[in-house]
Design a protein around this nucleic acid. Structure first.
Lengths: 220, 220
DNA sequence: CCACGTCCTGACCAAACGGTCAACAAAAAT
DNA sequence: ATTTTTGTTGACCGTTTGGTCAGGACGTGG
């Protein structure tokens, strides 16, 4: 449970390999990972610095050395997710048409829901509570991003490559559907007989979602 | 801000009309409404009994007279939402085909998202955190409900009334898409220029969602 | 009018919270 | 080898939390 590789480690059981900067990076990452888990499971208000510290395997005071306040730590967690989340649009831009572009976007977002469910939950929680710490992101980065994709969709429509649908409502549906498999993963798992979706089930899910959506916008 | 209609009210500014049971019912309802708002805005962990009391216009101790613990109050709020949420299926059962049935279900769920956004958020938050207080509901009522609708969908497919899609993934998409307009209402409002959706926009949203979904399952 | 049971509430409490700090350990710089 | 900078930590603090309780106010049946 401890990656103690070299015997001549300092007092604490930590210290990945050596250099100062490396240790710092590793510790910071461990804190962020623990924080993401705890914030996802308990929400911002329900999460405690003590619990995050326990999960990270560090004394609480050490957390406050790396992150001044609980809110600062939370902010970093949310930003981290936001960036991962925006990267999923790469396939969107380069595509020649909606079938390829939106299909790739669904695949990418489903993969994120699978691999970063906690991140998605923290994001959802933040937005649900009125986005108190990332409101500026919504008004700048997200707004620009959304308008950019909407333009692409409108061009596809104008070129007759897909049905006439409101680009914003289409994007909302894509977000809602893909993120649902992370945010409501527990509910889905329960309805799946209490077992997490298998690899095959995840593939079937992607296929099913893409099928309905792409047919819904007049592609395929 | 106070519905003090008759002058001969007792010490507190409350007491709707008269009888004992009626006062109790009204107070309980006021507490539940305030709790729904506060739980939705702050989450279970972030909500405080003091704040709920303030919103309800009651002393904190009075809340503990009606609801023993914070968790008991929260449980009631979640149950209340769950019931409203299940009622939306009425149009589903009576329908003769998917266009009518699923169309009505989308309309009903969109209307709930519009009128009970806080309830939807509390539900989402509860499920996201692993459904600690309503896990039994997921395993009994929701599981039965879902399997029941899945059967209806399979029958429609067998009768050639709609395309072959996995009933569960279709239901997830319906839940995700409709509830998204409540849970992520703040994000949508921000992308809508900071203004809530107007009546016309809500109607356009319903039409747009129904259009994509129904076309996506081979109806219309 | 009285007495009983329901309802209401200010004051209070132990526990837990986020955050601080002085003292210490370890690496880097001199 | 010694100083300086960067990390680490147990103990501590003021505040806030969910919950309690004794006592007062009120409607209601006798």
């Amino acid at each position: 449970m401890n990656d103690d590789e070299n015997g001549k480690s300092p007092k604490n059981g930590r210290s990945g390999s050596g250099s100062r900067a490396e240790t710092r990076r590793a510790t910071e990452e461990a804190i962020l990972k623990a924080a993401e888990t705890v914030f996802a499971e308990a929400g911002f208000g329900g999460a405690t610095m003590q619990l995050i510290a326990d999960v990270a395997g560090l004394p609480k005071a050490n957390l406050h050395y790396y992150f001044d306040t609980k809110e600062a730590l939370y902010r970093r967690v949310v930003q981290q997710i936001f960036n991962i989340w925006l990267e999923a649009a790469d396939g969107f831009d380069a595509a020649s048409g909606p079938a390829e572009g939106i299909g790739a976007y669904i695949d990418a977002k489903m993969e994120i829901s699978r691999r970063h469910p906690n991140g998605s939950k923290v994001w959802a929680s933040e937005v649900m509570h009125g986005a108190p710490v990332i409101q500026d992101y919504l008004e700048t980065t997200l707004r620009d991003w959304t308008e950019g994709r909407a333009k692409i969709i409108r061009r596809w429509i104008a070129q007759g490559q897909m049905a006439e649908v409101d680009p914003y409502h289409l994007l909302y549906m894509l977000w809602a559907t893909t993120q649902h498999y992370a945010d409501f993963g527990h509910q889905i798992e329960t309805l799946n007989g209490g077992k997490p979706l298998s690899d095959a089930q995840w593939e079937a899910t992607k296929t099913s979602v893409k099928g309905i959506v792409l047919r819904g916008i007049g592609v395929e």
